[in-house]
Structure formats: structure tokens, C-alpha cells
Design a protein around this nucleic acid. Structure first.
Length: 227
DNA sequence: ACGTCGATAATCT
DNA sequence: GATTATCGACGTA
């Protein structure tokens, strides 16, 4: 088990946001292991980024975590009911982070499905399977992430990132750069001119096996009942 | 598929 | 008192 280190996060935020695509977010919850393969991130680049909570160096009780060491969890609560998980980036004192916006289930399908919908994974409709982890609040609900984890280091057993976790049967599946799409960020209409910056990153091809010939559309029928 | 809308509380002014 | 880095339900197509 080799969590991504502080050094991984102590880089420019756009690089970290892209590098996290394809990696796993691993959670130890009540004796069970959960893992998500990350397919969507957003960069919030700090003092100069009008969309960032710490724009202009804004330092409040909430944003304090953004100034912490790289590899710290920045968790905040929005819209009265949802949590969002970020990984703090850049050297300590630079208030930047990567928002984890979406993933696909890699381990603990049933527990995540139960936390989201109260039913085991196999019982979910295709629509609900698609909706399991495709948003920052959904991901936090599935993984049991809330404000208690704000400020926690992302290098402990309870919550960490990794390229792969052989002990848990998670082989590395790094994202191919050609499969990364950059788009404007979601839900930041307040950010004025920074609204349109292409700082949201989506991993478009999820079956990244190195096939010589790639049929143009969905090639595998193994869309759902994973193992 | 896509637009609109209400829920609901931490956080900041 | 206003705002909010969202979600899901419900409408219309």
C-alpha cells in the first residue's frame, strides 16, 4: 500500500488535477475498504483564481485548510446538505486544491450503493449505477466523507490516494493524456472572467486497456456488475 | 435529453 | 440576512 505522498501534491495544481485522473481514492470505513477510480477533477488555483474560496488571499475559518500542507484534505459543506472533498496542493501557504468531482466504483460496490441508495449494487438500475459517484457530493456520501475529515492528512489508512493498491486487488490504470478532456468548471458563475477557464478535467475513456484496434463505440458489455 | 426548482445549513457579511 | 465549488425530482421534448 503506497499512498501518494505530500510531494505528489506539492506541485502546480493543474498538474495534480490531471495526475489524479485514473488514480484511486481509497477509504477505510467501519472495517471495510472502499475505493473509487477518479475520472473527474477540478483545479482551484489559489489567490488569483476568482473561483477559489481563497481568492485574494481570503483567510477565514473555512479557508484556513487551503493554506495547510499539500496532501491535506479540504472538506467543505455546501447548499445545506452536501460535502465536497479536495486535496490541498502547492507548497504550504499557497491556498490551492483539487476538487474530486467524480469516479467509478472500484472496491466496496455494495457498501457505496447502500450509502447512496439503500440497496446493494446489483439491485441498482443502470441510471442509478451511473449516478453512484458522478458528482462531488455523491462521492462524499458514498465514501462517508464529512467535515470531520477537514484538515486530515491524505496519507493515512483511513483516506488516501494511490496509483494502485495491489493488496486490495487494485492494479494501476493510469490515464492516457489523450483521454483527458479539459472543460470549464461547474457551478462557479460567480467567478466572472475566470468562469471559462478550462480547469475541469474528465477522463473520457474508462476502459484503458491497451487495445490495438479500438472500435468506435462501447466495446465491452461488462458495463455493470463488476467482479 | 434538457430546463427549472426546492431542499437545507454552514459560512460569511 | 444572503450566498452557496450540489442533488434529485419533476416537467417538457
Amino acid at each position: 500500500m503506497e499512498p501518494l505522498s505530500e510531494a505528489f501534491f506539492a506541485r502546480d495544481t493543474l498538474s495534480v488535477a490531471k495526475a489524479l485522473l485514473g488514480a484511486f481514492l481509497v477509504r477505510r470505513l467501519g472495517g471495510a475498504w472502499l475505493a473509487v477510480r477518479i475520472v473527474e477533477t477540478e483545479a482551484y488555483v489559489g489567490r488569483r483564481d476568482r473561483a477559489c474560496h481563497a481568492y485574494g488571499g481570503r483567510r477565514t475559518a473555512r479557508t484556513e485548510t487551503l493554506f495547510a500542507a499539500p496532501g491535506t484534505a479540504y472538506v467543505y459543506f455546501v447548499y445545506g446538505m452536501h460535502h465536497c472533498l479536495n486535496a490541498v496542493t502547492e507548497p504550504e501557504g499557497e491556498p490551492a486544491a483539487v476538487l474530486i468531482r467524480g469516479g467509478e466504483p472500484a472496491l466496496g460496490h455494495d457498501l457505496m450503493a447502500r450509502r447512496r441508495f439503500g440497496a446493494p449494487f446489483a439491485a441498482l438500475s443502470p441510471a442509478r449505477r451511473r449516478a453512484l459517484l458522478d458528482g462531488p457530493g455523491k462521492l462524499c456520501q458514498a465514501l462517508g466523507v464529512d467535515l470531520r475529515l477537514n484538515g486530515a492528512p491524505l496519507t493515512r489508512r483511513s483516506l488516501f490516494f494511490a496509483e494502485g493498491v495491489p493488496e486490495l486487488g487494485l492494479a494501476p490504470r493510469p490515464a492516457v493524456p489523450a483521454d483527458i478532456r479539459a472543460t470549464p468548471r461547474i457551478g462557479i458563475d460567480y467567478a466572472g472572467p475566470d468562469r471559462a477557464l478550462p480547469w475541469r478535467f474528465v477522463l473520457t475513456t474508462t476502459h484503458s486497456e491497451t487495445e490495438a484496434s479500438t472500435p468506435r463505440r462501447s466495446c465491452s458489455t461488462n458495463r455493470s456488475g463488476r467482479p
